[in-house]
Design a protein around this nucleic acid. Structure first.
Lengths: 351, 351
DNA sequence: AGGTAGTGTGGGAGCGCTCCCACAAGTGAT
DNA sequence: ATCACTTGTGGGAGCGCTCCCACACTACCT
C-alpha cells in the first residue's frame, strides 16, 4: 500500500502548486503532465513525475470537477423496489463486471436507489445538477420516465435490457430470444411435445423476446403453437405457482415447462410436486438465469445462463465511449450502440 | 419529477449568486438558508426559499466540497474476491438497508472494490486524498490492513463483523453466538444428541463466535462437547461437502449437523444424501443466513436469520454519527460504538 | 536579414461554493 | 444618552484545479 500515503499530515495534502514549486515548473505544466497532455518535453515530464512521487500528490477531485465541469463519476441507478432483481445474483454479477471494467479508469461508481418517489425526485435533481458524467440503468420498465429524462438532459446513459426493439438509448442485453429458443429446442430434443411457457413480466421487453423465442422454436420444429400453453407470470416464485396451477388445470397433459426465471421455475416445481408430477419423469422443467437456486433445487434445474458479468463490462465500455465522445463536442457518431451477448444452456437433471 | 428540472438550459444551472440576486439578498445569506443555519430571519428565509424554488437551484457539490473540505460521500468498500459474500443476499440486503437509511440525507454512496492489489492501492490513494467522509467496511478478514489505515488517516469507519472482541472500530454485528445457540438448542429440543458443527472460515470472528455458541449450548444442556464433532469449513459449499464427508467417516453416528452457512449446509446435505442418510429422519440439518437457497433446498432448510437490512441501517447510523462528531472538533466521545442485533431461527423441514 | 510557423511553458482568471470578518440595526442595562 | 451585547446580513478571500492567452524560443522558409 502507498508508503507515502500518510506523508504531509502537517498541513493537509500537497497541491498542484506545491508540486510545481518542487519540480521547478509552472502550475500549468504540472496540470498538463497529470492529464497526459503530449505538449510537454520529456525532461520536464520526468521532473514533474518525480515531484509527484516524492510528495505523494493526489489530485483533488472536487477542485478538478469544479474547474473542468465534469465529475469523473458515473451512477448506477437501481430501481430498488424490484427486490427480485436486487437479491438475485444478477445484480452482484453485473456489479462485478462493472467494477472490474471500471478499475482501469479514474471513474468512480455511485450507487443510487430510485425506489420511492422521494428518491426519484432526488435523483432527478441529481441528474439536473449534472453531478455524474454518465448513468447506468438496469432493469427499467417500459413506462419509466427516467430514460427520457436522461436523453433530455443530454446525459450519456446505457440501459441494460432495452425497453423495446427501438430503444433509443445505448443498450446491452443478452440474447433473450436465442436463450428461449435453446431452452425449447433442448426440450424438444428430449422428446417433449407439450411444452408450456410461463412468461416473465411482459412489460419487460426481454420477457416478450423469450416468448418470441419459444414460439419460433416450436414453429420451426414443425409444431403448432398453442397459445393456451403460454401463461403470463412476473418473474416471481408466487407467479410461478399461480401460473403452474392454472396450466395444470387447463392442460393436464403438458410434459414440459419452460419458465422465464429460475424462481418462477421453483414455484412451478412446487406445484408440480404437489400435483404428484415427478420432475423430470412426468414433466421436464427449464428455468432462466442459472442462479444459485437452480443449482440447489431438487432435482437441479436446467437453466439458461446469461453472461451477466460480461454485460456489466459491456455497459461500462459503451458508457465510457459515450462520455468520451461527448467531451470535445465530438462528431455525435450515431453508430450501433446496441450490444447483444449470447446465452448458454446449462443442462441439469430437471430435463 | 421536478418540473423545473430542465429550466435554464440557456447558460447552465443557476448559481448561489443568481439565487441571491433574485431574492435580493447577499450570497452569504443564501448559503446560510441552504445549510439550515438558524441565524436567518423568517422573512429572508422565505424569500430565499422562493427564489431557490423558482430557479430550480441545486447546489454544486464540487464547489461545496472544495470550499468546505468535505465530500458528502461515503464509501462502501467491498473486498470483491469474496465472491461468496458478494453473491449472497447478504450483500444486497445490506445495501438495501444502507440505501434506505441514506435516502434521508444528502450523502451519496460510493461503491469501491478492493479485490486486486491494484484496486487496493487505488483505494489507499483515495482514502489518503480524503475523498470520502466515511467508510463502510464489510466482511473484513482479521489480517486486513485496511482498518488500521483508516484509523491512521482518522477517517470515520464502521465495520460489519468486528475482527475480534477488541475491535477498535465502530462495528455492527448480528449475534453470532446467540444465533448458534438457538440452532443447537433447537436441535437438542428435537431430541438430537450427536450434533456436529461445520464451522465457517475461522479467520472470521463471527465464525468463532458461532463455535462458542455451539459449545455453550451443548454444555448448558448437560452434554459433553466432543471436539471431534467440530469440523472446520470455510462458508463454501465445497467446504461443506469436504467437512461432511470427514465427519461421516469419523463419526458415523451423528444425528444432526449445524452448518455455519446455508451453502455449507447444502454441500453437507448432498454428501449425506449420497451416503444414504435421509434428512431429517436420519440426520437433521440446520444452516445459517436464511438465504434463498435455504428456502429452495429439498427439504427446505432450517436456518438462522440475521437482520441484515437492519445491520446496514445501523452501520449508516453509526457512521453518520461519527462523521458529525468529527465535524466541529467535537468531544470525541468514546461511547459504545458496538451494535449487536438479534438473530432469529427459521424452522423448516430439515430439522 | 526578416518573416512565419510551430513547440513548450508560465501564470491570470475563474469555476461555485463556505468561511469569516465587518458592520448595521435593534435591545436592554447603566 | 451611552455602552455593551445580540441578531441578521453583505461580501471579500480563498479552496485547488483547468483553461487559455501570452510569450519565449527554435526551426525553417523566403
Amino acid at each position: 500500500m502507498a508508503s507515502h500515503g500518510v506523508r504531509g499530515r502537517s498541513g493537509g495534502r500537497p497541491t498542484l502548486e506545491e508540486v510545481a514549486a518542487r519540480a521547478g515548473v509552472g502550475r500549468g505544466t504540472v496540470s498538463r503532465v497529470i492529464n497526459g497532455s503530449p505538449r510537454v518535453s520529456d525532461a520536464t515530464r520526468a521532473a514533474v513525475e518525480a515531484a509527484v512521487e516524492e510528495l505523494g500528490y493526489v489530485p483533488n477531485t472536487a477542485a478538478r470537477a469544479l474547474a473542468a465541469n465534469r465529475t469523473d463519476a458515473i451512477a448506477l441507478v437501481v430501481p430498488e423496489p424490484e427486490t427480485r432483481f436486487f437479491a438475485e445474483p444478477y445484480f452482484s454479477d453485473m456489479l462485478k463486471g462493472v467494477g472490474s471494467e471500471l478499475s482501469d479508469t479514474e471513474m468512480q461508481l455511485l450507487l443510487i436507489f430510485a425506489g420511492s418517489d422521494r428518491e426519484r425526485e432526488r435523483l432527478a435533481q441529481y441528474l439536473a445538477a449534472h453531478r455524474v458524467d454518465g448513468v447506468l440503468l438496469v432493469s427499467v420498465h417500459a413506462d419509466d420516465p427516467l430514460p427520457d429524462l436522461l436523453t433530455q438532459l443530454e446525459i450519456p446513459a446505457v440501459i441494460s435490457g432495452p425497453r423495446s426493439a427501438a430503444e433509443p438509448l445505448a443498450s446491452v442485453d443478452s440474447d433473450n430470444y436465442g436463450g428461449a429458443r435453446s431452452a425449447v429446442e433442448h426440450l424438444l430434443s428430449r422428446g417433449r411435445g407439450r411444452i408450456a411457457h410461463i412468461t416473465g413480466h411482459l412489460a419487460v421487453y426481454g420477457a416478450q423476446r423469450r416468448v418470441d423465442g419459444y414460439r419460433d422454436a416450436l414453429r420451426e420444429a414443425g409444431h403448432e403453437v398453442d397459445e393456451g400453453l403460454i401463461e403470463p407470470g412476473d418473474f416471481t416464485e408466487e407467479g410461478g405457482r399461480r401460473a403452474m396451477a392454472e396450466l395444470l388445470r387447463r392442460h393436464p397433459d403438458i410434459d414440459a415447462v419452460f419458465a422465464a426465471s429460475d424462481v418462477t421455475a421453483a414455484g412451478a416445481g412446487q406445484v408440480l410436486r404437489e400435483a404428484g408430477r415427478r420432475i423430470p419423469d412426468d414433466v421436464a422443467l427449464v428455468g432462466y438465469d442459472d442462479s444459485a437456486i437452480a443449482r440447489h433445487m431438487e432435482p437441479p434445474l436446467t437453466s439458461v445462463r446469461q453472461p451477466i458479468e460480461e454485460m456489466g463490462r459491456a455497459m461500462i465500455d459503451l458508457l465510457l465511449a459515450e462520455i468520451a465522445d461527448r467531451r470535445p463536442a465530438a462528431s455525435r457518431g450515431l453508430e450501433r450502440h446496441q450490444v447483444v451477448l449470447a446465452t448458454e444452456l446449462v443442462e441439469r437433471r430437471s430435463s
